[in-house]
Structures are given as structure tokens and as C-alpha cells.
């Protein structure tokens, strides 16, 4: 999986309440959720994000609520991959389970600036800042987790298991 897009840069502890505020959780329609993605941290996000863009953030991205609406909103807003120094654990699971690629790289998170063009090779874990020429390497996923991602998310893996 290879991605290339513009980086949208955020700080640490980006919580799922600002990714998708609870006032919009009375629906689970992905298109509806995407309209309000990042609304309480960056009101202009939905207007400026382009399909294939990348979110870059510092530590503990996705902390707080377990709402899967958060990775769903990010994915359906057009974001192809999230790079962060670290992820909150429920968000980490939810992203894997729902097929939103995420990469953990403190170096990349520190180096990439807002608006940089970034290329990502999810298979090798290579992150290239095309604006600066810097190359970073993300932590590889454990093989078990990689298998879920390659299968297309947890539900597909479960289907294999239960034989449906």
C-alpha cells in the first residue's frame, strides 16, 4: 500500500471528541460523520482536506472515547493514513479493525510540517517527506496485526474463522 498526500499537522493528545464531537454521534452514517471530522480542533479541516491526504500528530493520538466513529470519520473525509508518535490503544485497535492505515514514528511526527507533501509505503514502513527529502521508518506491525490488515479488517478475518 502506497500513499501520497499533503500533511495536516496536529499536536499531542488529539482526542476522539475533537475528531468527531459527540453531538454528531446520533448517526453512524460514514458520509455524515465525515462532514464533521476534526471540527472542534480545526474547523476548516473538511474544507481543505483532499482525498489521499495524511494526518500527522504527536503522542497519544485518538485518546478518550472508544467511538469507532473517529477512524470512520477520518477515513471517509479522505485521509489515507495517520502518522503519530504514538496512538491511544483503543484508537489503535479501531484503526486496524476498520482498515484505516496508521503508522507509529516519533521521528516522522517531529520532522513533518503542516502542508508538506508526504509519501508513505505501508508495506516497508517507509515515510518520505517529499518537501524536505527526509526519510523515516515506522515501527512495523506485529505479524498477527499485519494479517488482520492484509485481510481487510477484523470482520473479514472473523469470517475466515467462522467459515461464513
Amino acid at each position: 500500500m502506497r500513499f501520497e498526500g499533503t500533511a495536516h499537522r496536529y499536536g499531542r493528545d488529539v482526542d476522539t471528541d475533537v475528531i468527531i464531537p459527540a453531538r454528531y454521534l446520533n448517526t453512524s452514517d460514514p458520509a455524515e460523520l465525515a462532514k464533521h471530522c476534526m471540527e472542534d480542533i480545526d474547523a476548516g479541516f473538511v474544507a481543505k482536506v483532499k482525498s489521499g491526504d495524511i494526518i500527522v500528530a504527536d503522542e497519544n493520538f485518538g485518546c478518550g472515547s472508544s467511538r469507532e466513529h473517529a477512524p470512520i470519520a477520518i477515513k471517509h473525509a479522505g485521509v489515507d493514513v495517520v502518522i503519530a508518535s504514538s496512538f491511544a490503544r483503543i484508537f489503535y485497535r479501531n484503526a486496524i479493525n476498520t482498515g484505516l492505515p496508521i503508522m507509529e514514528s516519533p521521528e516522522a511526527a517531529r520532522g513533518i510540517k503542516d502542508g508538506d507533501r508526504v509519501a508513505v509505503d505501508a508495506d516497508t514502513g517507509t515515510i518520505t517527506d517529499l518537501t524536505t527529502g527526509e526519510v523515516y521508518t515506522a515501527q512495523p506491525f506485529p505479524p498477527f496485526v499485519k494479517a488482520i490488515i492484509e485481510r481487510g479488517g477484523l470482520i473479514e478475518s472473523v469470517k475466515d474463522k467462522v467459515g461464513t
Binding site: 472508544s66 485497535r93 476498520t98 472473523v158
Partner: peptide, 25 residues
């Protein structure tokens, strides 16, 4: 599928929050 599921640890249980897909599985 609620982050505060960890509450039940007070009973000497292992309880953890997950997302909806984990709950479905």
C-alpha cells in the same frame, strides 16, 4: 464498546474498552 468499561476492574476482573468492530467479533 465504551472506553469506561475498565470500571469493572474494581471487582477484580479484566475489563477493557474496545470499538464497535471488536464488539461485533
Amino acid at each position: 464498546a465504551d472506553s469506561h468499561t475498565c470500571t469493572y476492574g474494581a471487582l477484580g476482573a479484566f475489563a477493557t474498552g474496545v470499538g464497535s468492530t471488536d464488539a461485533a467479533a
